[in-house]
Each structure stands twice: as structure tokens, then as C-alpha cells.
Design a protein around this nucleic acid. Sequence first.
DNA 1: ACTAATAGTTGACAGTGTCAACCATTGCTG
DNA 2: CAGCAATGGTTGACACTGTCAACTATTAGT
Lengths: 158, 158
Amino acid sequence: MNKRIVAICSLLEQTAWHYGNHGISEKCCEDLSFAEYTALKTVYENQQSTIQFIGYALNFTKSGATKIINRLEKKGYVIRKISPRDGRFCCVSITDKGIAIISRIVENQTIQLENILKHLTSEKKEDIKIALETLVSALQENKESKPALEDDLKGECC
Amino acid sequence: MNKRIVAICSLLEQTAWHYGNHGISEKCCEDLSFAEYTALKTVYENQQSTIQFIGYALNFTKSGATKIINRLEKKGYVIRKISPRDGRFCCVSITDKGIAIISRIVENQTIQLENILKHLTSEKKEDIKIALETLVSALQENKESKPALEDDLKGECC
DNA sequence: ACTAATAGTTGACAGTGTCAACCATTGCTG
DNA sequence: CAGCAATGGTTGACACTGTCAACTATTAGT
């Protein structure tokens, strides 16, 4: 077994734990869980997302997606609209309040991470960024794409 | 706000999501959740861990740690023993069955990750590894250490 | 011995995602 | 155009899982 890959795997798990629900959420997600924050960010980055799209992005079932959007709507961070083009679809978009909290959270996390990485040289930070980019895009490619979703619903369901 | 740090933050969140409960667990953790797997790995790497130590490693309360060890014990992956040195302590150690499942999971994940990263050159993989190492050790340093735990209980409570 | 501190356990509870069944809308077919 | 299948979304029952607060048991200090 390739030792380097094993090591990367283990490192990824550690960062995942740090950045998952048990590292981040309590400190800087205000009234959002990590899942809710991720969902909200998805909506933020893909205006007029459908419920299915959000579910796909989070690896949730559609009912899971419905519920998380319910919570976000109740808290005032997103709004639902029925698509005029096709009454079955639901267009979820972020509110100003939603944008505000996303900004605050990103800012907080950035400050924290900046502090954690403060001892590293600029080059090292750049290396980390590039490495993560490579990794994430490799992960993305690996995720089997649902063409129907990708093509049809990319930000224009309304 | 430092754009590079913001980017790293976002990338970390994405990998965290991939490697957290919603990416990994269903595919290769058999009958273990990601949390249980992490706990088991902690026990594996720190024989004779106390409950508190496991809780600390996972960012769980001690009652959370108790429960996760309960589950692992019921499944036969760890055993409890009361410390002969101090009857308040609980020494948790991994069983052969536990070692076996850890090995299987690590192997599966390695194969998966190997596949995901197969298009990258050896140098790039090395870069990723080094970058993650830097990051993880920076994260580790940041985690305020509980000296009492660290000194007293490191693998020798029994 | 009495008291305080510490390790661990327990039960009630809340948050959260899945499953299966359901409704509503649309599109296809004869 | 009627009927039916396909699709998007919602709902309620459920199970899992971690926290909180209260508890027991053991040890250490005076």
C-alpha cells in the first residue's frame, strides 16, 4: 500500500475533523450548524438553487435538503419562490440577512485561520493553497456529475 | 481581508465536507460512523487511552466519550479495564477485531484516494502531503493543550 | 476521618438526516 | 384532450448521536 497516500488520507481526516461540526461550528457559526452554513453558502454561490441541487451539493436526500432549507428560511437567511417556468421547482435565494451572516462567518474564520497560520512564510501558505486546490478539484471530478442537474438548473430556474 | 486565507478556508471546508460524515462514512466505514472511526483510531494510536483523553481528542464532553466507547465496546472493537493504579480511570484498548476493521477501512480509503489522485504527478502528491502536514501541525499547536492530560495519561494509565 | 477533587456513568432531551408515503405540476401518449 | 408516468418537493415517524445535569465511585489532602 502506498505510504504517502495513507499519510494524506490520515491528514485529510484530521483536517476534516477540525473543520467539521466539532471544530468550527460552536465557535463561529452563530446560530448555524456546519451543515446549515454549507447549505447557505451553496445558495449564496448558486443563486436560485433548486432544492435538489442543494441536496446534491451536500450529499443529502431531497427531504434532507427540504428540511435544512426550512430551517434557513425560518431563520430568515433564505427565501423560497416557486418557479414561474415550472411549478414543480423551488427557487431558493439568499436574503440580505443571509449574506450578512455569511460575511461575518467568513471573516471570523479567516481571522482564526490567519492566526493559526501566522508562523508560516508566504510561500508555504501559497503551497498549501495550491495543494488544496489540486486536491479539491480532483475530489470534484471524482464526484459523478448528474448532467441533468448541472445543465438545466445552473442558476436559472426562475 | 487576506484573499489567500479566505481561499484556503473555503477549500478546507470543502475537503472537510467530503471527508466528514457525508462523504466517507457510508462508503467505507462499514458499521462505524465517522465519529466512531475517529474514536477507534484514537484508541488504536494511543493504547490504554482514558475516556477523558478520547473525549479531548474528539472535542467531545466526557459523557459523549463514554457513549461512543460504549458503542465501540458493544460492537467488539475495544475493551474497557479499570486502572489498577487508580480506580477512577478507565483504560480503553483496541481488540483484534478493532485492529482488523481499522486496517480494512484504511485500505479502502487509500484505494479510493489513490484513484482520485491518480492523474497527479508524484511531485504534486508530495506537495499535497507536505502542505497538509504543515497545516495539521499548525492546527494542532493552536489547540490549547491540557497539560495534565498530556503528561499524565499518555498511554500509561494501566 | 472529613472534605474536595477527579473519572466516569446515566437519563432526559434536542438536533438532524433518512425513509416511505404523499401531493402537485408537467409532459407524453394514444 | 384524457389518462398516466415522471419529476420536484413536502411531511411524519423514526433512529442516531451528542450535550447537560445529576449522580456514583475512587483518590488525595488536611
